[in-house]
């Protein structure tokens, strides 16, 4: 058990193992994304009230899920780094922050586009949208804090603390925003809670949620691997890797 734990913390071991799984994960992600997108765009029936604009749900909802889940991934990685001083956890955290910020942005953006045909306006100060905006701020805080430190260990610890403080505050922020919204809810805009979806609409959504979980894992692993290479670039094994992948890098640098 402890040997396994120890090995899990080794960046080199992670790099090599994840390298073996990566192609399969990439294929699975792509397949799920293609199936889900086609199903959602072309085969699911349109919504009776919203028409075809409801098809944005197949991006918006999975992305929102992962934007929120990603914050917990980041915070847990930070906590692991703080408690057990596992460097790999800090690399995962470094990888998770910009990814989460991008997904939160995407959730806000698709939500805004969806809002235009549905509510007639791009931006509504709705509870969920406002919470998402706060989440974006929380992510950006971690990203910027990470970049402003010169010492890597200090940056890792500081970001971990910030992420944990954010985590315990997220429920409070969400509840308060919820409360605030019920207080100010304008009469003209009635946001129905999720009405029971028709199975024909719901099945592609499930596929898309699964697809985006795979996508998140894929990008997180890609980012972590790059971070590993960057931090371990003075070690022998990374240098060996650079030599053995000489042909590949030659190819990409020629393309650029």
């Amino acid at each position: 058990m402890w040997r396994w734990f120890h090995r899990l913390g080794s960046p080199r071991w992670f790099y090599q193992t994840s390298g073996r799984w990566l192609p399969w994960l990439a294929v699975l992600t792509l397949a799920l994304l293609v199936i889900g997108t086609l199903w959602g765009l072309a085969f699911a029936p349109e919504d009776a009230r919203q028409g075809n604009s409801f098809r944005i749900i197949y991006i918006h909802v999975p992305v929102s899920f992962l934007a929120l889940a990603g914050y917990y991934v980041m915070a847990v990685a930070g906590a692991v780094n703080l408690i057990w001083r596992i460097k790999l956890a800090d690399m995962v955290m470094t990888a998770a922050a910009p990814l989460g910020a991008a997904l939160t942005f995407l959730a806000l953006f698709t939500g805004a586009i969806w809002g235009k045909p549905t509510w007639g306006t791009y931006w509504v100060w709705d509870a969920r949208i406002t919470s998402m905006l706060v989440l974006l701020f929380l992510y950006l805080g971690v990203v910027v804090l990470r970049n402003s430190f010169s010492g890597r260990d200090t940056a890792g610890k500081a970001c971990a603390i910030l992420a944990l403080v954010g985590t315990v505050n997220i429920p409070i922020i969400y509840k308060s925003v919820d409360w605030w919204f019920t207080l100010h809810q304008p009469a003209t805009i009635k946001l129905s809670g999720a009405p029971s979806m028709h199975p024909d609409m719901f099945k592609p959504l499930l596929v898309m949620i699964l697809a985006y979980y795979c996508f998140y894992a894929l990008v997180l692993i890609l980012n972590t691997r790059t971070e590993i290479l960057h931090r371990e670039r003075r070690t022998a094994w990374v240098n060996d890797l650079a030599v053995s992948e000489l042909a590949v890098t030659e190819l990409t640098s020629n393309e650029q």
Binding site: L41, E46, I56, L106
Partner: peptide, 16 residues
Amino acid sequence: AMGGHATYVWGAYGVA
């Protein structure tokens, strides 16, 4: 054409 909502649907999917 997406039933008149082409800009929104394709815009959202494009940005994504």
